[in-house]
């Protein structure tokens, strides 16, 4: 991919390449700051590999887990990639259901994904197939829950003043 192309052209390059994934790419949306690609879980590894090798998004900025309680696709991973030469960032989202919590690991593409995926496992209980050392990282080893899930209470459950209704949801 050439180093400096204008933003519209870069977005078009991405869209053209995504067409090859057919219906596995469920949507390409323009969010407030970045272009976001929604992909099905079975294609996420191939898509990230194509991003890295063909479109120049060679830097994994961050990846993190998400939890949307009450939705059919309850869990998700969000990857932020960066094409440093072109100065182009992109967001890739991949949602899954609560009973299918195993993603392919991307540690083979970026060694830096190692701890990021361990964090996702530690806090959301998302598993990564092929991860070399998938164990808790920030919480203690025998911690009984996945604390970033929305159903894990932050406050003392006997407290009355921290009701979700007061937080606008």
């Amino acid at each position: 991919m050439p180093g400096f192309v204008v933003k519209a052209e870069r977005d078009q390059l991405v869209k053209d390449r995504m067409a090859a994934f057919g219906e596995k790419v469920t949507a390409i949306s323009q969010e407030a700051d970045l272009v976001c690609i929604h992909v099905k879980k079975e294609a996420v590894h191939d898509l990230l590999k194509a991003m890295r090798d063909e479109l120049g998004f060679a830097f994994l900025t961050t990846c993190c887990g998400m939890h949307f309680p009450g939705e059919a696709q309850e869990f998700g991973m969000v990857y932020h990639l960066h094409n440093m030469r072109a100065g182009h960032r992109i967001r890739i989202k991949c949602r899954t259901t609560a009973n299918d919590l195993e993603y392919p690991t991307v540690t083979d593409l970026w060694p830096t994904a190692n701890w990021m995926e361990r964090e996702a496992w530690d806090f959301f209980g998302i598993k990564f197939k092929g991860h070399p050392n998938l164990k808790r990282i920030l919480n203690m080893e025998d911690f009984p829950a996945f604390p970033m899930r929305k159903d894990y209470p932050l406050e003392d459950p006997t407290r009355q003043d921290k009701d979700d209704r007061y937080f606008g949801r």
Binding site: T61, T62, C64, T112, Y166
Partner: peptide
């Protein structure tokens, strides 16, 4: 980096912090 997801509520729906040294310390 700050990855902020807002659902219009009083607090962030999700805030992911990209902490640089968390990421590079694994090397």
């Amino acid at each position: 980096g700050f990855y902020l997801v807002s659902d219009g509520g009083r607090t962030p729906f999700r805030l992911h912090l990209r902490r640089p040294c968390y990421i590079y310390y694994q090397a």
